[in-house]
Nucleic acid binder design. Structure first.
Lengths: 232, 232
DNA sequence: TCAAAAGTGTTATGAGTACACCCATGC
DNA sequence: GCATGGGTGTACTCATAACACTTTTGA
């Protein structure tokens, strides 16, 4: 540092709002940790923590998430920065929140530093949360539902190959309501980013075609300015 | 502070990307300040600065904007937080950027602390900017154009009463291209937030009807979940 | 042969876009 | 009477949303 300032510095943290859904899930789940240290010891909170000296915000949130829960999110985007002066009893702490998606069955939860336990909790049954984390979660859920539904984000919550019914199920879990099968299929296929593998899978009923997400094609389409924006 | 940490703290700043347009403007303008202190002394930069101990981010950006340029923005929203470790030569500085709109003719520019001069500069002729401010401006412009066009934001850039042609002109300046008069009128009136005053104004030609923005109605519509989202 | 999920097409509606002419006024 | 900006309507296209039956399989 070549320059100095008179003013007291705020702390800066990152918090991760990571949603999970499985095909077996009844509903969307949120990844929370039980705090092991004051303040709010024993309460549930979003995974997160202080930013290290030489890491970007993106790197910090990925690291904290990994440390506190063992989770590596397949998708993480910056959401909003919360900076009310009184949001943290320890003093001035500004926090940048991220929105993430993860397949719960794919990860093994561990408990790490500053956290007793990491756990998936259905969004209908959220406990009281530490700090202003409830407001952060609300804003993340709004963003997820409004911005992502038809972006091929459900993909992150499925195995490499999946049936269209499974994909639909994921969207329904995220949105919290049912979708029309025919409209869903037409729409999702019209994006032209799903590739049939030719394989089928039968669960004991009529076999369903298996699809994969064509990430290259997706990136190519994005560059041409094609637009996946849609509302629910 | 009841707790202490071992880690070095980052500084936190706010930066304001404030766009301006007048009816007389040929194009959208950006509010910049010429830096009076190192680093980047003498270079143009976004107005902004360090957050005070007991103010929110929203308050900080409004204060800095006022101090450095004399401008009180009629509209300011949080854009994104930039936190690459090397974005500021002074050391670790994380910055939360805001997007704002202002009517240039309505404000008197002043020069304040840390700034030699404040100035409106057409976005086609932007000079090199200090720090990573160019990237911030690009992201603000994308957001403005993609998110705001049909939200009644052009309103902020007009006097209390205005003609539909004037409103259209503002949208054209923001978007950087022309719009169809008939489609524009139908659309903007369908939102049902403009009220005819009954008055007319003649500039020497056929008199045009004057409208006002019905803010109460706008708020009422927002609550019912009505949605002004549109693309250009 | 039955249960259960896979798969498939049509119609109606609303939004967006393209497009050209008459109107009222001041000079 | 003419130049200037004000003001208006229609037709096409495309996306969405609502809606029901047939197919394939395993048990």
């Amino acid at each position: 540092m070549t320059y100095t300032y008179e003013h007291p510095k705020a702390d800066h943290t990152v918090d991760a709002v990571v949603f999970g859904a499985d095909l077996e899930s009844a509903s969307l789940q949120l990844l929370l940790v039980e705090r092991d240290v004051a303040p709010f010891e024993g309460m549930w909170a979003l995974p997160g923590g202080f930013i290290h000296r030489d890491e970007s915000l993106d790197a910090a949130v990925a690291r904290e998430l990994k440390e506190e829960t063992g989770v590596t999110a397949s998708y993480l985007e910056q959401l909003y920065t919360f900076g009310e002066p009184d949001r943290d009893p320890r003093g001035r702490v500004i926090s940048t929140a991220y929105l993430g998606l993860v397949r719960p069955s794919q990860v093994e939860l561990v408990s790490g530093t500053d956290a007793r336990a990491a756990k998936w909790i259905p969004i209908q049954r959220l406990p009281r949360l530490a700090f202003d984390h409830k407001a952060i979660v609300t804003s993340a859920l709004t963003r997820l539902r409004s911005k992502l539904p038809w972006q091929p984000v459900g993909i992150e919550l499925l195995p490499k190959t999946f049936t269209l019914t499974e994909l639909q199920r994921i969207y329904e879990i995220i949105l919290g309501h049912e979708l029309d099968k025919r409209n869903f299929r037409r729409k999702v296929l019209s994006f032209d980013v799903l590739k049939s593998t030719g394989e089928t899978r039968s669960d004991g009923r009529r076999p369903a075609q298996l699809f994969t997400f064509d990430r290259k094609r997706y990136i190519a389409l994005q560059k041409t300015g094609a637009d996946f924006e849609v509302r629910a």
